[in-house]
Design a protein around this nucleic acid. Sequence first.
DNA 1: CTGAAAGCGCTAACAG
DNA 2: CTGTTAGCGCTTTCAG
Lengths: 337, 337
Amino acid sequence: LQPKWSVTLNDIAREAGVNVSTVSRALNMRNGVRKEVRDKVQAVAKRLGYRPNLIARGLVTGRSHSLGLLISDIRNPFFAELVRGAEDAAHASGYHVLLCNSDMDPAKQMEYFWSLINNHVGGILISSIAIFERHEVDQIVGAGVPVVLLNRPKKPGPFSTVLSDNPKGGAIAAEHLAQLGHRNVAVLAGPRRHGNLNDRVNGFLRAFQSKQDGRNALVVPGVNTFAGGYEMTRKLIARKAEFTAIFAASDIIAFGAIRALNEAGLRIPDNISLVGFDDVEMAAIVHPPLTTIQQPKYEIGAAAMEILLKQADKKDVPAEHRIFDVKLIERESCRKL
Amino acid sequence: LQPKWSVTLNDIAREAGVNVSTVSRALNMRNGVRKEVRDKVQAVAKRLGYRPNLIARGLVTGRSHSLGLLISDIRNPFFAELVRGAEDAAHASGYHVLLCNSDMDPAKQMEYFWSLINNHVGGILISSIAIFERHEVDQIVGAGVPVVLLNRPKKPGPFSTVLSDNPKGGAIAAEHLAQLGHRNVAVLAGPRRHGNLNDRVNGFLRAFQSKQDGRNALVVPGVNTFAGGYEMTRKLIARKAEFTAIFAASDIIAFGAIRALNEAGLRIPDNISLVGFDDVEMAAIVHPPLTTIQQPKYEIGAAAMEILLKQADKKDVPAEHRIFDVKLIERESCRKL
DNA sequence: CTGAAAGCGCTAACAG
DNA sequence: CTGTTAGCGCTTTCAG
């Protein structure tokens, strides 16, 4: 049907008997074009099925139409929710998102970062690992692209941050378990260097041990996945640790714990109480329905993207910081001792 | 630190005292450059912190470095798994993926499609809706970009397809339920025009009703989400339909059904047996663990992407078709009548 | 209001 | 082997 792969401004210009620049102006609705020729140009464009090449446009304007989304694994439902919020916000502003899964691997993360830079994204949303090395921070800053971090507390510096009140969430979980009479609790902490998760367990520990009446928290590190939660719990059981409750630093870890507990013949909450963190959709339908700390995942993703959009393709927009509140969702995975 | 935003081939050329084209050749490791100057150029590039502008390169080579991923909702764990497979495959070939959530909305889908075209992606993987209108097919073909479909059976035509054997999966589910003695089963079918889901229920219906001994299947349409499964099941209960088992066309629908059943005081599998489709990770840990049809989601995504990569930025590569096998995973959500 | 020309950063002929 | 030139498709001066 079409001889050429795609039709360009030049094709329209020739067909309409005007100059390319006029076509450009006409199509971009700039004023400074007689209505008469503008209509004609637009008619020709339509007839030829013109599609603007945004890549070419971006090259000259210096503005991109895409943002990077650097997370650890989209299969984690927490990230799926977050990414959806971010994508919706980006789409509303006419931007695309490039999805990158780093698996918490610092090398892979930096590789993706530079690759995004090479593709001239307007900004990058990062939620893939907790802590950057100093030289990594320097590199990122040097790249000159706006960055929003979703995994570390606000810090003076060039990066915007948005996150939920993780320490408070941990504290709420501790209060809850303490109130139910639990004195020995295992905390499934996740990776040692994971900012959000660490904040949660630190918040938990501080609150739980504040009252010095023989409370005991046993923290076990691991991977922030279903398999990770499963493994941590199995280890716990194998080593015959004494505990009546578990605080999992994320729901996905809690789900793994449920599986391990079930396999070991331990019943929730009869033998072991369990509280998670995130309140992903599935938390309500696992068995038993999981008591957990809720944080607004979609909103966090959307808010982060909105900040990024403000900064994208601009310079010297100041960093911005937002913290979202958390709350306890009581379901059926905890019992009074 | 750097006065300019980013360093270009020109900067290197000036600094190294050679021509841009020489720099280009040297950096791209093309032969035809004396080792001596190549080393010098590369040294300068490194010192200046050169980053190739892939956007500009793409403009001249006509090749892109990104592919579109057009799905309905990343929050659906099935898609998350699929997307992860696709992204890994793309990344292995140096491509990025643009994630688009269409929510099964045909208009939104076409909007995304054109937007991807305007951004000159090398190909598009579509799994967001079942059936295209004729004019939509024409548009997509006319856009001249390779497309792999994940949601409709192989058809003679320009589109590659990869999917699992949905009819067989449905049939297996039917056999299983029939063998357990169920005669009245409700099937939670999902959207009427959803290719994969329709194939599953048709496969189910054909197998279930083949033996003419008074078997009865009641199919109820709805949305392919957790909320959708919940709603369909509530409707079923409200209308006091008679059934001893449910076949849900997807796990996510099954999860919604579990919630509705629980709320209604119906126990699984004591009162109602339930079988799903997909075998997402959560299927193993909901209560009770869900009997379901397994399909290789990650592999499907990866295979689709590999086909797309073969076709990306090339023309006249023939369409390719792959079908993946499915199998029954027996867990604890069904009982013998 | 419109055309001509320059150029974004890069590659790809074509000469030398 | 290397420099010169042209041009990808588009926007944006700058003249007219």
